[in-house]
């Protein structure tokens, strides 16, 4: 589904990613872990197509198509979803209106008719129940005055509504208390299928207790320095990142 080949990218002339290789197949859950400043968020931004980042070398291929020439919205239309580490506030635009626009713009791009309002509303209710969200949520301004936990839950709610093929969850666990974390993880698990894939970007093992990855990669100084199964995450949790750094220094 997603193939990243020798990706070098950075911002304002600073190279942050220095040769990333990663392949994600349908049905898989991958986790990328790493200390602060290792390039985790840069990777998610580059895949989503954020303009400020320059790709100097390498390729990103999604379902056999080169992503490099596609605008962020075109990538979204192809089924790439990014759950933001810091979701953005848009005052005056309700959650409903935002989602309606997002869904119908995506349908338009695919040459489909807008989703009928009653079907959309039904779907919203279903997904909100899945994430144990209050109905009043829909008429609030997008992320405006939301608590950290509400923002993250809203990201997963949008993911549930948009049904992406590849969901990149950037530090979705940060700012969540344990109950919210369980609800969010539960939502992600229920949305998983053999046809879609999840890329978790996280600092801590905690999230991986709830969303169990098939593969864990350690990102350090812009490179994936170690890959393994879910046990790698436990090892990291126990030993911290220092042993990776030491291994690297050798």
């Amino acid at each position: 589904m997603l193939k990243i080949n020798d990706l070098h990218a950075g911002i304002e002339g600073n190279e942050i990613l220095k040769g990333i290789n990663l392949e994600i197949k349908p049905g898989e859950v991958h986790a990328i872990m790493g200390p602060n400043g290792s390039g985790k968020s840069t990777l998610s931004s580059v895949v989503a197509g954020r303009e400020e980042y320059e790709v100097s070398k390498g390729a990103i291929d999604f379902e056999g198509e080169d992503l490099m020439d596609l605008d962020p919205e075109e990538r979204a239309h192809k089924g790439i979803f990014l759950s933001f580490q810091y979701p953005i506030e848009i005052p005056g635009v309700t959650v409903t209106n935002f989602l309606k626009t997002a869904i119908n713009e995506t349908r338009k791009a695919k040459g489909e008719e807008p989703m009928p309002a009653n079907i959309m509303l039904k779907k919203m209710r279903e997904k909100m129940a899945l994430l144990e969200m209050d109905k009043g949520f829909l008429s609030r301004s997008l992320n405006d005055g939301f608590s950290g936990g509400e923002k993250k839950r809203n990201e997963i709610f949008q993911m549930a509504m948009l049904e992406p093929k590849l969901a990149i969850l950037d530090e979705t666990d940060s700012g969540l208390d344990i109950d919210a974390l369980r609800i969010v993880a539960n939502g992600v698990n229920k949305l998983k299928s053999k046809d879609n894939a999840v890329l978790l970007i996280t600092h801590y093992q905690r999230l991986l207790d709830y969303i169990v990855p098939d593969f864990v990669h350690v990102l350090y100084k812009g490179r994936i320095v170690k890959s393994g199964g879910k046990e790698l995450a436990l090892e990291l949790e126990a030993k911290g990142y220092d042993w990776i750094k030491e291994e690297m220094a050798l």
């Binding site: 400020e52 239309h77 990014l82 848009i90 635009v93 626009t101």
Partner: peptide
């Protein structure tokens, strides 16, 4: 209107012109 806001909309499949319309209408809602 921030680039962050526009990118957020873009990432959800909303093109830049449409995103501006959305943000501006939200701003003028009252």
């Amino acid at each position: 209107i921030g680039e962050d806001q526009i990118f957020y909309c873009n990432q959800r499949g909303i093109g830049t012109e449409e995103a501006i319309a959305l943000i501006v209408n939200g701003y003028c809602k009252d």
